[in-house]
Design a binder for these strands. Structure first.
Lengths: 140, 140
DNA sequence: TTGCTTGCAAACTGTTTGCACGATC
DNA sequence: GATCGTGCAAACAGTTTGCAAGCAA
């Protein structure tokens, strides 16, 4: 996925970020993965390329990339995870494999069918995720 | 909600738990609330009744009550939260007010409309939550 | 009395902050 | 060269653990 990485890097630069090697490797982590990644995994990946990277650099950049809309943060039981933000044009949800943690798009949005809301409840957002075992992991 | 508290206490005893004052107050927290509660809030509530309760007692019991199916654990951005488990017979989801954190039942289950799954994906569970501002908080 | 529960203290994990040095533009 | 980014160390919050003493059954 060369193009995906380049696109990410360009986006970061266009947002005014300086392109450091740390940030380039972070971009590579997410351009290679369609799943949810732990900060710990990001740090592990980068420290193999840049021995001595610090945890706070990883955290700072994950937060930064989330703030500028490149990443998306999810709160799971095992800790916070990050994932490349899907295009804003394509609203959808995900099937999530609880083994390999890869995600698969789910085009259906349940809000289409939510008609009655509690008295004067103003809807702001929603979360819909389906968990299971994907085909690749199910054959183990 | 006298009955709700008594029912909770009975359930705990029937599961073989000893009824300590700490546990009774924890039961009261959840029989009074339909919302999601932080461990910190539970501890605060109890320490007003039992000065000096320890955090680990709160945590131990919240985990215990979750294990035996009395409570349910949710992972939110602000930390883990607990909530009385809704009856196993009544599967439903929730509207959640992001201000007061009260919950309102949402009877519709989106799984009814999920027909196509990824190749060989075995569905195990799902999460569906609608966030917003409830009527009481919206008038501020 | 027996064994489950608690409180204490300490450890631990994940995350954040201040500061001086180093790198990018 | 000015500014942004990094590494370090330390602080911090939430959570978990081992152990001795306390309490419910």
């Amino acid at each position: 996925m060369e193009n995906k990485l380049e696109l990410l890097v360009e986006t970061m630069v266009s947002k005014g970020l300086r392109m450091t090697s740390q940030r380039r490797w972070i971009a590579e982590v997410f351009s290679d993965s369609t799943g949810f990644v732990l900060p710990k995994q990001v740090h592990h990946y980068i420290s193999e390329r840049i021995p001595g990277v610090s945890y706070d650099t990883v955290y700072r950049n994950l937060r930064l990339l989330t703030d500028i809309g490149i990443l998306e943060q999810f709160d799971f039981a095992g800790g916070v995870r990050f994932k490349l933000r899907c295009g804003p044009d394509s609203h959808h949800h995900h099937f999530i494999c609880i083994k390999c943690e890869q995600t698969y798009p789910l085009d259906y949005c349940p809000m289409e069918n939510v008609e009655t809301t509690p008295e004067a409840f103003r809807i702001l957002s929603h979360k819909f995720e389906v968990y299971g075992i994907c085909g690749r992991c199910g054959t183990d």
